Amino acid sequence: MSQGIKCLLEKNDPNVPCKADCDNKTIIINMNWKNQKELPFKIGHVIGHIANGDHGVQI
C-alpha cells in the first residue's frame, strides 16, 4: 500500500487466475483459487508486474 498499489479481493471460479491492472496499479486476487497454498506466491507475482512497470492487464 505504501507504493500506491490497490488490492481487490474477489471470489471467482477456482480456475480464474489473479491479475494485475498495471495502468491503475491494482491487483485482483481470486480468493477462491484452486490451490490456496499458492495464493501468497500469486500475490507476489502480480505485484511484480506492477513493480516492473508492465502495462495493461497481466496474469
Rank of each mutant, 00 (worst) to 15 (best):
I5G: 05
N32A: 08
K11Q: 15
L9F: 14
N52Q: 13
D13G: 05
K11L: 07
N52E: 13
T26Q: 09
A20G: 09
N15K: 14
N12M: 13
L8Y: 13
Q3R: 12
L39R: 03
N12H: 14
F41R: 15
P14N: 04
C7V: 14
I5L: 06
T26P: 06
C18R: 02
N30F: 03
N30C: 02
V16P: 04
M1K: 09
E10T: 13
N12S: 12
N52D: 13
K6E: 11
C22M: 10
K19G: 04
L8K: 15
N52Y: 09
I43Q: 09
Q36L: 09
K42I: 10
I29D: 05
I43W: 01
I27E: 05
I27W: 04
H49L: 09
I27V: 15
D54R: 01
S2N: 07
K6Q: 12
L9V: 13
G44C: 08
K34N: 03
G4A: 05
N30I: 01
L9A: 12
N35I: 07
I27Y: 03
G4F: 01
G56I: 06
L8T: 14
I59L: 10
L39E: 06
H45G: 08
D21I: 14
M31T: 15
V57H: 01
W33M: 07
K19F: 14
E10F: 09
T26F: 00
D13R: 05
E38T: 04
I43P: 07
N24I: 03
N12V: 00
I27R: 01
G53M: 05
G48F: 07
G56L: 06
L39Y: 03
W33E: 03
F41I: 15
N12L: 14
